[in-house]
């Protein structure tokens, strides 16, 4: 379990390029670093549910990213807070 405050990186992975899939990690976060805000609970992996594959139960986290790191054209103190499954996170 990842503790609140843990820095994490979203995997720089593109399953979209490898055939049919269902991904709940938005493209604009791939490869970016954020901080775990809290553990939201454990849920069956929607990437498996979408294809009726045997499902794994995965920890789900709220992860915060400064918007300035995501886009080149940023002004203001903006952040993005996103639900991400542990399978998409790696140590930063």
């Amino acid at each position: 379990m990842l503790a609140s405050g843990t820095p994490v990186r979203v995997k720089l992975d593109w399953p979209e390029t490898r055939g049919p899939c269902h991904i709940r990690t938005p493209h604009y976060l791939r490869g970016h670093q954020g901080v775990v805000v809290r553990h939201l609970g454990d849920f069956p992996n929607p990437e498996a549910l979408a294809f009726r594959r045997p499902e794994q139960i995965l920890p789900l986290y709220h992860v915060r990213f400064p918007m300035a790191g995501l886009w080149p054209d940023q002004h203001g103190n903006n952040t993005v807070l996103v639900e991400l499954y542990e399978s998409w996170l790696e140590a930063a």
Partner: peptide, 15 residues
């Protein structure tokens, strides 16, 4: 930046 990513068409954040 993200415009170069092979995003899926429904993945619309920041497009």
């Amino acid at each position: 930046m993200s415009e170069a990513t092979p995003r899926a068409m429904h993945d619309l954040g920041g497009v």
